[in-house]
Write a protein that binds this DNA or RNA. Structure first.
Lengths: 179, 179, 179, 179
DNA sequence: TATGAATGAGCCTTCATTCAT
DNA sequence: CATGAATGAAGGCTCATTCAT
């Protein structure tokens, strides 16, 4: 799957030949079929793994009850870490069509945004946050990281990214809003 | 190209058969090859058109010198309008690999983020904005819209989206940051 | 037809596109169909013309009753002249499959060898020639010229070719046979 | 390749469908592509093999130093035998355009005529032959056989052909030249 | 279980042919 | 009669998939 991720990350689905995957993985072509029913199955398994991993890293660390900004930071940090640790998986994930594909994937995608949305709503309730559209803002968190990791500005580090993102969301960049 | 956009928007490249495109466009299969050298060429032409259109809509309206937030609003509104007017082109665009593909596409992609980055920098200089990382924030604008349009929350409208986005970026959602 | 000959001479049938023929002939693609029913028809017309021309040049000049070697010389000279005057037609002709193709072509091909065979037989009867297999020797004449014109040795001229060919057939190259 | 030879022998390149070749060879269509990169490659491989075989059969048996006429007889016999043993390969070969095609083929074609030319020149030196144009006569040998095998007169046998050909070349058919 | 040679369904692409102008 | 834009039948080629070893 590492090999497959590497290839699918940088090439369209149809550009990746199972023969290349097999070679990259240093196994026979037939061996792939021992573990995956088809090329599609392999591709979906990849995305499923990616989402699973991301969910693990980003959401599992969140402990409800702690400060809302701490929770958001945990999620953001998790996603960034994941994106930097598994850039290939991350890129594969990003290209996945939102179509019906696989219910498991839909569910995980949903879980991820829901988790963030929940934190935001919790923040609204606790008064530490004022967000009239947490369902939009939650999309924002994921998209942001996605964009930065796909087209990384020069000299980007996990820390800078995390810091900047949280600051923007928290306080905005308007001058009159800070003092 | 309309027909092609419609198909490529909802299906992976390899799932789209030129025969279907031809049928959808109500022309003969061979006719496609009168105008496009290959399936790839058609696909790239689509993306190129999309970026061109988007650039037109989003960047051309910006008049430097006006208030920074007005400029940002113009861009944001343009991108959102484009995404809603041409959802198919928008979806095709989004899936384009950042790879070498086509220099023209690379250039347009670059132009778009640069335009936003420039506005932000201008804002920094004028003091209306305080953004230590405009190169990151510019990515943010695009990613945000992209994410929202790909996985649209229920009841989303262009106005709400525009408003929410600008508010977040301007003032953040932190309670202590506003009064 | 000149244009077609030029193209068919140096390229396999399938390598020649009617579009190229039209362009080379400086007419529209459709115009070809005003004069030829199909690509095959054009091709066959070409071969037919070639054989007709060759027959004209090579056989028509032969006047039975004259000296046999004069007659042979006339034929040989005619074929060589034709080959050098219309190298393209000549090359097209050579590649024609001996298959059923076109009865008219078969007939002309036959006429050509028959003409030579007849001269040889006449020579046998008159005693100026001793050839136990004129049906083979007649093939020889054509093949010879064909070979030389397809893969011409450097510095070949019509005269040298004609002279050499007749000498070989008449007297052979064995030393003991001449004095 | 046997199957391919059979088909290419009696049909123009474009009339032969790879599907037919596969069927004739009793293998899958895809299997052809395991061994040949393209239809062209298959065709050229065929011609290459034909020339190789012919070279083997015709030239390898020649032992320099033996009587010149024996050497020529060996070559002639070799070519005739080859033509009769592999009529398909022979016919394919004949149609090959003298164009650039494949350097290996060019070389073999050259080798063949050179070999005969060398024998003739050796004959000139030894005095057993008087041939002012061995470079032309060598073409003759090949063309002759080619012609006879392509349009075989009825009742042709290898022996008759060999005998007749050598006799013509050696002594000619002029009556005054023999006694 | 692992393999890779063989396979053929499927698709892109070509180009002879048509026909409205 | 001349044209060339449009067409779709045909076939070369790919590659996911199978299966005998």
């Amino acid at each position: 799957m590492d090999a497959a991720a590497r290839l699918f990350a940088n090439h369209e689905f149809h550009e990746v030949r199972l023969e290349d995957v097999a070679e990259a993985a240093k196994v026979g072509k037939g061996t792939l079929y021992v573990y995956f029913a088809s090329k599609d199955a392999l591709y979906l398994a990849l995305i499923r793994e990616a989402f699973g991993e991301l969910l693990q890293v980003a959401v599992s660390g969140v402990s409800h009850g702690r400060d809302v900004w701490d929770q958001l930071r945990t999620v953001v940090r998790g996603v960034i870490r994941f994106g930097m640790a598994y850039p290939d998986l991350f890129r594969v994930m990003r290209r996945a069509l939102p179509g019906p594909e696989d219910p498991a994937i839909q569910e995980m995608r949903c879980k991820l945004t829901s988790a963030i949305e929940e934190i935001l709503k919790e923040g609204n309730r606790s008064g530490r946050i004022h967000d009239p559209h947490p369902e939009i803002t939650s999309q924002f968190f994921l998209s942001f990281i996605r964009g930065v990791l796909m087209y990384p500005p020069a000299g980007m580090t996990a820390e800078v990214l995390e810091e900047h993102m949280l600051r923007v969301v928290r306080s905005g960049i308007g001058k009159e809003a800070r003092r």
